[in-house]
Every structure is written in C-alpha cells, then in structure tokens.
Design a protein around this nucleic acid. Sequence first.
DNA 1: CAGTTGTGTCAACAAGCGTTCACCGAAACT
DNA 2: AGTTTCGGTGAACGCTTGTTGACACAACTG
Lengths: 206, 206
Amino acid sequence: MSHIPVGIRQTQKRKTRQALLDAALELLEGQSLSSLGLREVTRAVGIAPTAFYRHFRSTADLGVALVEEALGSLHEMIGTTLAATGDSDERIARTVDLIAVHVGTHAAHVRFIARERHGGVQPVRAAIGEQLDRFAEEVAVELAAHPESKGWSEDDMVMLARLYVDHMVMTASAFLDAEPGNEERVASLARRQMRLVSLGRRHWLD
Amino acid sequence: MSHIPVGIRQTQKRKTRQALLDAALELLEGQSLSSLGLREVTRAVGIAPTAFYRHFRSTADLGVALVEEALGSLHEMIGTTLAATGDSDERIARTVDLIAVHVGTHAAHVRFIARERHGGVQPVRAAIGEQLDRFAEEVAVELAAHPESKGWSEDDMVMLARLYVDHMVMTASAFLDAEPGNEERVASLARRQMRLVSLGRRHWLD
DNA sequence: CAGTTGTGTCAACAAGCGTTCACCGAAACT
DNA sequence: AGTTTCGGTGAACGCTTGTTGACACAACTG
C-alpha cells in the first residue's frame, strides 16, 4: 500500500541529520558557530563523534545547512506579508505583527541568522548574503507590481527592497533582544520607521 | 625635567594591554569572539598565557574593552558628520564618504562591531547595544537642532535617529563586504536609501 | 637603602578538541 | 540467498585549551 517510505535507511539518516541540526541550533543560542564543536553537537544528540562525518564535512557545512532551513521558513512569510490587503498603515501594522509572530515561533532560527550574518565563518556568511539577496529580489518583484511603483527604475526598486529586507532583519533581531513586556515598544518603533520609509517612497519621484 | 611619565610601570602595562587588544582585533578578523582563545592572543603578542590575567579577567572582558575602543573612534565621526554643511543631497554624499573613509582606516574595528553586535558573548552584546543607544541619543539631539525638526515629538526624533544609526552600521558593514571596485555601488545604494529617508522625514507631518 | 608592589615567567594539571582507522550489523541490491 | 552498501561505534592519536601556584626581578614607596 504505502509505497512512499523511500527506504528505512534514508529515513533514519534524515532523522539523525535533523537531530544534529536541532541540537546545533539550540547550542548556538549561547555561542557563535565558529566556537561550536563537532563533539559538542554529537554529545547533545547522543551519538558517537565520528557519526557526524556521515552527515556533514564540518561544522561550517552544518552551518550552511542551517541557513537553508532558517531562511526557507522565511520565504513563506514574504508572500503573505506583501499580499496583505488594506491601506499603507494597515499593511505596515500587519507586517510588523507577522515579524513578531515569526520571531516567537522561530526564535532560534532568527537568532542564528542575525548572529551569523556577519559571523566568523565565511561560507555561512556567504550563504546568508546570497539568500538575503534572493529575498530582496522577490520583494522587489512584488513591489514592482504595486501601482505606487509607476515610473520607478529597476535599480531604485531593488534599493527600496533592500531597505525593507534589512529593516525586517533589524526588527526581528530587536524583538529577540526585547525583554518580555517591551515588545510593543519595538513594534511601535518599527511601524513608525516603516511609515517614514513609505512616505519617502510616495514622494520619490517629486 | 619630563615629569609627565606617570611611572614606567603603568606605561609598560598600558603598552602590553594595547598589544593584547591589537592582536585580538587582528585575530578576530577571521573568527568570532566566542571562539577566541586566551592563549591564542598571548601567543600572538609573545608573552606567557598567564600574563593575560594581569590585564583582563577573560576574553569576554577583553571584548568589552574592544567595544570602547572601536566605538570611541566613531564618536568623533558623528560630530563632523552632522556638522556637515550644504543642502540635503550634499550632506548625504558627505556622510556616506565619511563612512567609507572610516571603514578604510578602521576596518577591523567596524568588522568587530558588526560581528559582535549580535554575537555569542552576552556582555559584549550588551556593551555594543548600550553604546549604540548613546550614539542614537547624540544623533537625536543634533537632529533636533535642525529647523526641519519643527513639530517633531522627542519619540519620533529618536525613532529617526535609530534609523540613521542602524543604516550607518549597515552601510559600514556593506563597505566591508564589498569586493574592491564595487565600493561605488555600495555608496550609491546607501545614498539613495538615505535620500528616501530624508524625503520621508520632510513629509512626516503632512 | 630597605621593603613592598606588581608585571611577567615557567611548569603542570585535567579536560577538551578534530580526525584516523578498523569494525559491526542491519538494510538494500541482485 | 549471497553480497554489497553504509550509518553508527569505540579506541587511539597528537594538540590545544583555561587555570593553578610558586617564583623572578624591576619599579615604586618611605
């Protein structure tokens, strides 16, 4: 009947691999990737250190895999964010709320991206940079579809998209650092900053 | 005659301490603070590992000292930046140039701040956050002096200041990551983003 | 000049690291 | 059924790590 199993072996491998990723992500809440030890991760999972090599070449390699996982979960968000209806202020409020929710449900992922974006491991930095570029591209395409973008050059479109993306990352990281109870202050700040950018956008061609 | 020396001892200590800071800063170009070893630093300076404790309690402590050094050198810049004359576009261009120059002359400091701002060492993160807050405060005060800020609430003033400060850090880090020859692209992007923010600022009270 | 202070040294420690190799046993293939 | 494939094991390697205590010797203090 159920002929989807793809083999018990591959399933088990995926499970162990995921356990390694999960354990690493948790360990990374208190340190940077460049100080994360291979033995540390395997110990947390409960397997022998040597088994690590069956899944990743090094901790840097594991880091790159984490980038995919973390920013993959963000790609979904972008669609819903920009598809939000209503006037400008409403859309801004909804976007900020979405960021807050995402930080709540994927805190470790967000922390990892913010931390390693400028972190000490080159391949991981490169992977994050690449993903954020693609991210900005998507945003630019969505923005171009809006009627307010009439007359904008493609270069300026990307300029604005980058500003939005960087501001999103900034805001997400601010939510992370906010002590419980101060989230609304962060949200208010982020909303007003986005509103200011929106105003600039409206008068760009004056 | 020259009775300024404050003692040869204190002078020597300062020199060794500075050597430790310099060596650490250089080592940190290729890794994060949380993976920086005490022995690694002393080895680079050429002193015994135990001598480290005469100057710092731990590498985290050294990191905090580096924050003071790195952001101290930035405090000078803020004055000259905002005191820049000319119209808006001219001031923006001058600001971006100043950032580019600063990144050129203090690359390691900028890298350190960008990397450890969200890094894995809590006390250092806190120190950077505190300094950037004070930084934003200063910018807010300067902005309030401008005539364009008539009618702005203090809260909104800080909101704008934070946007500027975060954008400066973002731009500085972008200059760092730019491969040689692409600096002008980064500068152009930064200028247009600042121009857009300025536009928003002008229409904030509409 | 005698006594104190303090930066730096040396040796030693237990513990951790990444990486290697040969090996096991169950799953997958033919 | 016989063979190959492969995720996981366990021991061992050479090296690095943070921290300790006792000691040297130049710089300060009175």
